[in-house]
Amino acid sequence: MISDISIGQYYTGNSFLHKMDARMKFILVFALLVFVFLCKSFFSLALMVVFTIFAVLVSKVPLKMILKSIKPLFIIILFTAVLNIFYTTGGTTYFEWHSLKLTEKGINTAIFMAVRIIVLVVISSLLTYTTTPTLLTDAIERLLSPLTVFHIKVHTLAMMMTLALRFIPTLVEEIERIMNAQKARGAELETGGLIARSKALIPIFVPLMVSSFRRAYELAFAMTCRCYTGGEGRTRMKQMKLKPRDFIAALFVSALLAGVIVLNHFFKAVI
């Protein structure tokens, strides 16, 4: 159950998307997330969907993995869609019952919302599937580096993110180990009311906290021993370089933006 978490999961591959510069991927994904909300007509939305499917195919990430990233959000998607059906009104009314109204605009909004969320999730999970967590935080560090002007320690933030991601699987393993040990002493974790259950968490979380602090100290020692002093004057073994393929991708996404704007302009806005 705990090991089902798929945040920051990387899918090993060698596709065009895998080889792209992480910084460019980050910027383009951000741009795409904005484009999804620019779509106003069915045609521009369809263009976005087609592009997303195309990106999935290019990444060579199996469809099963993509579906796995949408699955946990299924209820949220359904909830938003249902809310939008009844809360947005306008256009032809199909059905009315007390204060509930089913209108054309409501249905359109619901469809748009559902599709937008799915596209959002798929595109951002493509980013994590094709980029290793290390490269991802590296990219964030580079992209945020202008902020050092305001005395924000970007390197420290990025290092913290890398370490946090690195320790998720370790902590999951640790929790399972401690849970087993306490279960062996007769702890009941899955029965009882809310209070009993939260009380049952104490024997899990106290040792977890203790060992997390121990790990943090050990890690800090190990880093100090290897002369880690923060970001100042630090160079890198692997330099990030923009290659032609990154510009091709950027061009492609720009063309997509143009397409969305043109389609929005020529076809009726439905929401």
Binding site: R177, I178, K183, A184
Partner: peptide, 14 residues
Amino acid sequence: RFKVGLCFQYPEYQ
């Protein structure tokens, strides 16, 4: 669970 007492590796961490 009570008949078989299981003591894991490095039990001090529990």
